[in-house]
């Protein structure tokens, strides 16, 4: 049960983003820019960064949602699964391995990001902007994960929930729908 009263039909981050709209807006804006804005990293690659950080923070809700988004954007489910298991042997480019390494270090703490980790990314062709965005996506998901777990929000166990959520964040992105998310009209309708 969450530490503060939140609407039952809005699990995980979704209820928190309705709790204080004035703080939710810049969090949504930042996410939309970083994960859906113009970038030399694909949306799928950026979702993999969100996924590995959420996975290492053990935040089930965020991990499931962003794994689903990555799967949908990449058109297969193997890459995200293997990245979470061990990104060094996952089927991604050397540049992505170096960036996932930076994301994994950022998850531990900012100071864990070494000049060697940066050098490796530069050597594999990563630009300063890609490194910047990787660190900031990883840092942003530490915010999300700590927000979601720190208030003990509920993570649905039904995979169908994340199917719907994945479609929403891939299809419509991270901004609030006009009027927010309405409660289901009856218990049979989700």
């Amino acid at each position: 049960m969450p530490h503060i009263p939140l609407p039952e039909h809005l699990p995980g981050i979704t209820g928190l983003l309705e709790y204080r709209l004035d703080t939710a807006l810049p969090i949504r804006d930042l996410t939309q820019i970083l994960l859906r804005g113009e970038s030399t990293l694909t949306q799928g690659e950026r979702e993999l960064i969100a996924t590995i950080v959420s996975s290492r923070n053990c935040t089930n809700f965020c991990e499931a949602a962003h794994t689903k988004a990555a799967d949908m954007l990449l058109g297969e489910t193997e890459t995200a699964r293997l990245v979470k298991l061990n990104f060094e042997t996952a089927p991604v480019s050397d540049k992505m391995k170096a960036l996932l390494n930076i994301a994994a270090l950022t998850q531990k703490s900012g100071k864990s990001v070494t000049p060697e980790a940066i050098e490796r990314a530069h050597h594999a062709g990563a630009t300063d902007l890609e490194i910047h965005d990787t660190v900031l996506i990883a840092a942003l998901f530490c915010l999300y994960n700590k927000y979601v777990d720190g208030l003990a929000t509920v993570a649905p166990t039904d995979p169908a929930y994340y199917e719907t959520l994945g479609e929403r964040i891939v299809g419509r992105g991270y901004m609030r729908p006009p009027g927010g998310h309405q409660p289901p009209k009856s218990t049979n309708e989700v």
Partner: peptide
């Protein structure tokens, strides 16, 4: 987040 942004870079 802010601390990781500042120290991670």
């Amino acid at each position: 987040m802010f601390n990781r942004y500042v120290d991670g870079l």
